[in-house]
Design a protein around this nucleic acid. Structure first.
Length: 415
RNA sequence: GUGGGGGUAGCUCAGUUGGCAGAGCACAGGGUUGUGGCCCCUGUGGUCGCGGGUUCGAGUCCCGUCCCUCACCCCA
């Protein structure tokens, strides 16, 4: 009987999954270096108000999904539901613009949302995210999208790019008025949830999945018809740059993201193999967030990638045969086996010895099961004769060798 | 928060009309005194999610509860 369980929605990531997760992270880190991003390591908690201000008070994340706790002084802290707000806060707090723009940052780590767990959705999950702070250009949007695509491609995860624009402060308000007018007129026919959303967050009505809502929304005014000249130009240039890079986005005029801070570009990288939670990575532009955090008006764009979701689409790689398992037959041999293993390790080789005090046969089995390339046998005969037996575990052949020969890396001359 | 499907060995799952709790895999030991994989034998391992009820008897029927899972909502 199990006495304790991991908290609901919080998963233990065991080997070999943990290895695969590390592999994904390494792939990303490698590319991030090539694109010129440096890591920022943030606290996993922030003052709760930070999220109200940045993500939006009416969003579900803030309304019902935050883990909130009080410190001893009575300050309300929230476990971070996402990291962009924290990056923006740190950027402002440390005056990071003083070293010149752009500032290119990435982060990796756990996020927390108190939701009902589901496939690809956890209460603690890991995101790897990128923030490109400073540029207002569509090329910047394109670069972050291309980077996200690049990472996923390297990880062998096929995705589709869904793209939209949500306008900015100069065109969104008038569009919202227009949309609101439409929704109020047709509100009766919408689902109950949408009727509530009309007043609280009308944009969200757009991506309702109810068939009858979708039907009505076909006639809804689209932001694309209301974009200001700047937003339109930005949008078209972005499409242009992406296409030039061989990326054909799926333009989804109804794509709206759940965070209030987005302006202009929003995107999702979705996989058809994920079930309902199909976004592996998502992001967008947030030109006012830094200012909202008390900094100078600084445009920025970024995305975050759900590691668990990516992991769902990655297989665990088979371990390749590697290293030396030192098999010892007698008690005295065990001491020497440990010595040999230590010497091999000092030379940078994977080397292990039996610590379960098991039989030679069991040690051989272990060497095989743990995918060692070689077993070195230190038995009675070897001790007496002052030599070692080296066995190639894949080929099944063995020969004698000397301690020195082994340490000098002389594995190759096997028959 | 709402709905569907599930909780039996470490894992994947059988378990007939209520009648002694099983298989495969994994793990451990062995198969003529040192040698892994294939094969064979043996073994370890279950308060059948938890609590109550019905019954001579409950994994099985009833009630409650917790958890997992999928979907809605929302999102990475």
């Amino acid at each position: 009987m199990v006495r304790y369980r991991a908290p609901r929605g919080m998963e233990d990531i065991l080997p070999p999954r943990s290895k695969t997760m590390r592999r994904l992270e390494e792939i990303a880190r490698e590319l991030l270096a090539l694109y010129g991003y440096d890591e920022i390591i943030l606290p996993v908690m922030e003052q709760a108000e930070l999220y109200l201000r940045s993500i939006g008070e009416e969003t579900d994340i803030v309304q019902k999904e935050m883990f909130i706790l009080e410190d001893r002084a009575g300050r309300k802290l929230a476990l971070r539901p996402e990291a962009t707000a924290g990056v923006a806060r740190a950027f402002v707090e440390h005056g990071m613009d003083r070293g010149g723009l752009p500032v290119k940052l990435f982060y990796v780590g756990p996020m927390f949302r108190h939701e009902r767990p589901q496939a690809g959705r956890y209460r603690q999950f890991h995101q790897l995210g990128v923030e490109l702070i400073g540029p207002a250009s569509p090329e910047a949007d394109a670069e972050t999208i291309l980077l996200a695509l690049h990472i996923l491609k390297r990880a062998d995860i096929p995705v589709e790019l869904r793209l939209n624009t949500v306008g900015d402060a100069s065109c969104r308000p008038s569009y919202l008025r227009e949309l609101l007018g439409f929704l109020r007129k047709r509100g009766e026919q919408l689902c109950g949830e949408c009727q509530r959303r009309i007043e609280r967050n009308p944009l969200r009505v757009l991506d309702c999945k109810e068939p009858r809502c979708r039907e009505i929304l076909k006639e809804a005014p689209l932001i694309h018809d209301s974009l200001c000249a700047e937003c339109r130009a930005h949008w078209e240039e972005l499409l242009d740059v992406l296409r030039q890079q061989g990326v054909e986005p799926l333009i989804d005029p109804l794509l709206v993201r759940g965070l209030d801070y987005y302006t202009r570009t929003v995107f999702e990288l979705v996989s058809p193999n994920l079930g309902a939670q199909n976004a592996v990575a998502a992001g967008g532009r947030y030109d006012y967030l830094i200012e909202e955090m008390g900094g100078k008006r600084t445009p920025a764009v970024g995305f975050s990638l759900g590691m668990e979701r990516a992991l769902l689409l990655m297989g665990d790689r088979d371990d390749i045969r590697e290293g030396v398992y030192v098999v010892a037959q007698s008690e005295t041999a065990r001491r020497q086996a440990l010595n040999l293993a230590m010497e091999l390790r000092k030379r940078g080789l994977r080397a292990e010895v039996d610590v379960m005090r098991r039989s030679l046969k069991a040690q051989m089995r272990e060497a095989d099961r743990r995918n060692f390339q070689y077993a070195v046998i230190l038995g009675e005969e070897e001790l007496a004769g002052g030599y070692l037996t080296l066995k190639d575990m894949a080929e099944g052949v063995q020969r004698t060798t000397s301690w020195d020969g082994l340490l000098s890396g002389n594995f190759e001359a096997m028959e």
